[in-house]
């Protein structure tokens, strides 16, 4: 049985008392994210060609793409930030920011039950000649849920 009066934590506690605390005053003082930290997915609608590869490879099924309606949408709260979509995008429309995704409140659920964190882009249809032929890509409906 060790000596009951010899508490090894006491000097440590006393030293802490006079030294600088290790914590931050969080909402007022925020440590910047490291370079290369994996945060939210950012999307450039201009370069996207709606190939749907990102949606098909996403393990969390967070990305929905509609070729007919020319929309690209992501559920930021479903996204697991693995970065696969960024890797597979041949047009480099997708990138990953270092910022972590925002906190969402229950009150942000929209009147139609839209989920918070739902982000959607829509590109107006250009003239028919602008659409490059993307042969071999299956119809949008069939590609869902890959």
């Amino acid at each position: 049985m060790p000596n009951p009066l010899k508490l090894p934590m006491i000097p440590r506690a006393l030293r802490n008392l006079v030294s600088k605390p290790a914590t931050r005053r969080y909402p007022f003082e925020i440590r910047p994210r490291f370079a290369g930290a994996r945060g939210t997915i950012e999307f450039d609608v201009e370069t996207c060609n709606y190939c749907m590869l990102c949606a098909r490879r996403c393990p969390a099924a967070a990305i929905t793409v509609s070729r007919e309606e020319r929309t690209w949408a992501i559920e930021q709260l479903t996204c697991i930030a693995c970065g696969v979509c960024v890797d597979v995008c041949s047009k480099h429309s997708l990138s990953m920011s270092v910022n972590s995704r925002a906190v969402h409140l229950r009150s942000e659920v929209g009147p139609q039950g839209q989920r918070p964190g739902h982000e959607e882009w829509h590109k107006p249809a250009p003239a028919a000649t602008d659409i490059p032929a993307v042969a071999g890509v299956p119809a949008p409906a069939a590609s869902q849920g890959a």
């Binding site: 506690a13 006393l14 802490n16 008392l17 030294s19 605390p21 290790a22 914590t23 931050r24 005053r25």
Partner: peptide, 9 residues
């Protein structure tokens, strides 16, 4: 004081 002893603010 407890927080400071634990190194917290």
């Amino acid at each position: 004081v407890s927080a400071r002893m634990q190194g917290r603010i």
